[in-house]
Design a binder for these strands. Structure first.
Length: 492
RNA sequence: GGUCCUGUGGCCGAGUGGCUAGGCAGUGGUCUGCAAAACCAUCUACAGCAGUUCGAAUCUGCUCGGGACCUCCA
């Protein structure tokens, strides 16, 4: 198995160190990633996180691990704020749109799936919902209660952070000190239910007007935001599992609370390796639903936006993201995207060129070493930009072989061919952009005729006519390119 | 205000105490009737100041700039 001969190192947000990854069970990995709260369309920033972890998932699979990848859908419990009258985001949207909450959930879950599919993300193995795990959440609250880390107040249940901090370290993930947190807390209305402003809701009492509520030992209510991830990750991956991922902005308080809840409920540290994907910025600022600084995937794929001016293929956007490390901030711009598009095409050209290579004699470079660099890059905390740079190194070599300037042996060719495709398609999750073979119908026939006539003109060295046809077609957004074996055309 | 991250060539982005990242753009070529595409070659760097060191873009301190979190966000 590949994972036995590759030492994978992962930067652990919990320790701040790059650590050698060892799974709890040999050959198996439990991976949990915080999914979206489905009350609006996913934007590109959201997508970056999910694409980052898609690559993590893909590389683990490539290494031969059997991975259980769980990514939740939060469809209840995510409050507008932590004040007493904080409204559930789904419920609020439902109220505003005059729809059933589950209609909201369905609409945006479908959008989420569609978009991630366009980015060629693999689906997780389990995609549990918060509403589907109310019982598990209630049970977890009871465990936390039994262990003395929760208290009830007016039908709501809160996590006792200060009590927890006596025997544990609240803030260990986000590197915060509890005193700083207390002094930095803003006073929100309606926090009198809580013993301390740091305490967070495990269960919220539902007012009569609330539309999403469930029975519990504490009356009708709904679960707190952080709880569903703890309940579902524990259920499907165990009390302690291998990797938990999510966006950097979830580190505090969401993930901090997860650690506290999990530890309080089971006595075990819930997660060995915490991974945080960094933000995608637009105009130098984080993409964010609340500030409106966002770009929706559809706006990007259609070119219907003010930022870029034209459409880009989802795979090009994915490649653009691969050229930055997941833990670095990445800024989105038309210029950067254009550069990626051309680079992507170059990489695809090279993979095409593999078909035209005839292996012969000895290899003029050390192919094993080159492939070793592919692995080394990914083993070093999933360093996709380094991997990409080595793929370009391979690109240069492949074109050299094709041009007869370099040579490759047949065994090396098989290895390189396999590795190039494995890393490009399986690990990075790229794919050839297949022109939408939309049925052009009569246009195909017409173009065939036109190009035939132009070819005739070229053979007669009637360049004026040949060029005029090409120019006129270009005005009609049809680009003609002359290759060695005839002309090709494509509609822009 | 508190905590933390970051500042690389025209643009995007890796990285290590001494050894070419890479992509795009630019420049020069190859190919082509021309054009486009493709391919080859190649230039520009490490925010500022001080320190540690034989040697620092890489370590330390300070200054200036950018960002994240501290309230919901991937």
């Amino acid at each position: 198995m590949l994972y036995k001969e590759n030492e994978l190192k992962i930067n652990n947000s919990l320790t701040g160190e790059k650590e050698v990854f060892e799974s709890i069970l040999d050959g198996f990995v439990g991976l949990y990633v915080c999914g979206p709260t489905v009350y609006s369309n996913v934007h590109l920033g959201n997508c970056r996180t999910f694409i980052s972890f898609d690559v993590v998932y893909r590389y683990l699979l490539h290494l031969g691990y059997k991975v259980r990848y769980v990514r939740n859908i939060t469809d209840a419990g995510h409050l507008e704020n932590d004040a007493e009258e904080g409204e559930d985001k789904i419920a609020k949207k439902a109220r505003l749109e005059q729809l059933e909450p589950m209609e909201i959930v369905q609409q945006y879950t479908l959008d989420f799936h569609k978009v991630l599919d366009q980015f060629n993300n693999l689906p997780p193995n389990i995609e549990p919902t918060a509403t589907g795990h109310i019982i598990e959440q209630i049970e977890m609250i009871m465990d936390i209660f039994d262990n003395g880390f929760a208290y009830e107040s007016n039908g709501s249940v809160y996590f006792d952070v200060e009590k927890y901090n006596e025997s544990n370290n609240y803030g260990e993930l986000s590197k915060r000190k509890i005193e700083d947190l207390v002094s930095g807390t803003r006073t929100l209305d309606g926090q009198d239910e809580k013993k301390s402003p740091l305490d967070f809701a495990l269960w919220k009492n539902a007012k009569p007007e609330h539309i999403m509520k469930w029975p519990s030992p504490w009356g009708l209510g709904f679960p707190g935001w952080h709880l569903e991830c703890s309940a579902m990750s524990t259920k499907y991956l165990g009390e302690t599992f291998d990797i938990h991922g999510g966006g950097m902005d979830l580190k505090f308080p969401h993930h901090e609370c997860e650690i506290a809840q999990g530890t309080a409920a089971t006595g075990e540290k819930p997660v060995n390796h915490w991974m945080h994907a960094n933000m995608l910025t637009l105009n130098g600022k984080k993409m964010s639903k609340s500030t409106g600084n966002t770009l929706l995937p559809d706006e990007l794929f259609s070119g219907n936006n003010d930022v870029l001016g034209r459409a880009y293929d989802p795979i090009v956007v994915r490649f653009f993201m691969m050229q930055a490390h997941y833990a670095s901030v990445l800024d989105f711009s038309a210029e950067a995207l254009n550069a990626s598009e051309k680079g992507f095409n170059r990489l695809m050209e090279a993979i095409q060129s593999l078909k035209e290579i005839t292996p012969k004699g000895d290899s003029s470079i050390d192919v094993d070493a080159l492939i070793g660099k592919f692995y080394a890059a990914m083993n070093d905390d999933f360093n996709t930009p380094i991997l990409v740079s080595h793929l370009f190194e391979a690109t240069k070599y492949i074109q050299g072989v094709k041009a007869g300037k370099e040579t490759i042996s047949s065994t090396d060719f098989e290895k390189l061919d396999k590795a190039m495709k494995a890393f490009t398609f399986d690990v990075l999750g790229l794919k050839e952009i297949t022109e939408e073979k939309q049925d052009n119908g009569s246009l195909d026939t017409v173009m065939e005729l036109v190009l035939q006539m132009r070819q005739q003109a070229r053979e007669n060295k009637d360049w004026t006519t040949a060029d005029a046809i090409r120019d006129k077609l270009k005005e009609a957004n049809i680009v003609v390119k002359d290759d060695k074996d005839g002309a090709k055309w494509e509609a822009q």
